[in-house]
Nucleic acid binder design. Structure first.
Lengths: 228, 228
DNA sequence: TGTACATCAGTGAACGCGCGTTCACTGATGTAC
DNA sequence: TGTACATCAGTGAACGCGCGTTCACTGATGTAC
């Protein structure tokens, strides 16, 4: 960070930008991301509508920033696990899968709208800028470390083999892990896919009408992923 | 159905309602569900805006109808499998899980926006009317039949046991199956959760940037669910 | 330390737009005798 | 079969609203000599 050499004006600018984003999240929580309105945010901050154009070029730039922050916060949570796991954890300083699962669920529950902004219904016509996919691959990297530490898993089913072969041939997404075992790649994708399944059903409220405790399904899935 | 005694006017009414919904889906496909506009639909149909109020009380009623139709079409697809499975399938006329999985994925891919309207980011402040949850439980019923036919599955992990005990105590959602084995209930929820995980990641486009074939992940998950 | 200038935050008016929804009305379609 | 009436589809004008965004402008904050 070059933050120490910030002029007061720059500091103030950043402060206002943060407040705008804060109000934006509140608004998203209330009426969904598609109803996000610059004018409404400005009014809530006690300013005039056009004032926000000093801080964001337009509505799209604000939304992009929100998505970037959402990715960033999840990636940071994962990286924190990786750093903390450098101590007495499984493997040589590698994070444990159950801990990553816990962190993922905690992050999702802390702000469901943030979760959906990242993993929910895609905004039509919106394409994430490249740096965001970079953040996503930071997360993947931590997950892949954990999967490698979890050791090879017996792939019993035939289609699991087929998927592993495909992964062995298409591993560009696992940058930084060129020699990861196909079983580890598969474990990472399975982790991702299954936990998002449980989380998105939970956060969309599909369990509440059923009277089920989503935490138990989630935990059972985590267990199925790590038990062998 | 009392459809045979329809007057021409009633027939025409229904025809126009269908056309409105058709255009509504097209519009959702283009700009998302939240951008659905009655005026725009009317214009596309060559009518004036207020004309649509002859057919739908307001915008919310139209959206509800779309959601209901979406649920209905998936439930019908499941029921069709159940009916067809009355022949040479596994168990006594019970549908096979892999076939249900295939049908689910085909349904989702046929119209991703329809999928997201049902399983995607919930519309803030919207609560589905009761008859829709009834349709959802029709699907669940077919799935539970298939899970019962699949036979008991060994629950290896401890948390799987905990989840099964919870399911044994909270089985209101499985109406019509009061004596289903806890393992069958768990299989149904796992089926639902895992396949929606794979599908929602696929349909949201999270795999396209990775260069992965979502069909293979999906198939591997189906295999993991049915192999024992 | 004081003055002259440049930078920048924020305002208020305005533009054009599309939205959901209401209302009074016209004209066509169906119904009853 | 023909006439009188009721029903209903669709129109056009209107209301009030909020949106994103532009523009010319004021006033405060920082910078240079």
């Amino acid at each position: 960070m070059t933050g120490s050499t910030k002029t007061p004006r720059e500091r103030y600018r950043q402060q206002v930008r943060e407040e705008v984003k804060e109000k934006a999240w509140q608004q998203i929580a209330g009426s969904g991301a598609s109803a996000l309105s610059l004018n409404a945010i400005a009014k809530q901050m006690g300013m005039s509508g056009p004032a926000l154009y000093r801080y964001f070029a337009n509505r799209d730039e604000l939304i992009t920033e929100l998505i970037r922050d959402a990715y960033r916060s999840l990636a940071d949570a994962f990286l924190a696990v990786a750093d903390a796991g450098a101590g007495a954890d499984v493997g040589a300083g590698r994070p444990a899968l159950p801990e990553l699962a816990r962190v993922l669920r905690r992050w999702a529950l802390a702000d469901p709208h943030r979760y959906f902004l990242v993993y929910g219904t895609p905004v039509p016509g919106y394409h994430a800028p490249q740096d965001i996919t970079g953040i996503a691959s930071e997360m993947m990297s931590v997950l892949l470390d954990a999967c490698a530490a979890a050791g090879p898993e017996p792939a019993t089913a035939a289609d699991a083999h087929a998927f592993e072969e495909h992964l062995a041939d298409h591993r560009d997404w696992a940058e930084g892990h060129p020699d990861a075992a196909p079983a580890a790649l598969r474990l990472a994708m399975t982790f991702w896919s299954r936990l998002h399944g449980a989380l998105s059903l939970e956060l969309a409220g599909h369990f509440t009408g059923m009277g089920l405790d989503p935490a138990l399904l989630f935990q059972a899935e985590v267990d199925a992923l790590t038990a062998r």
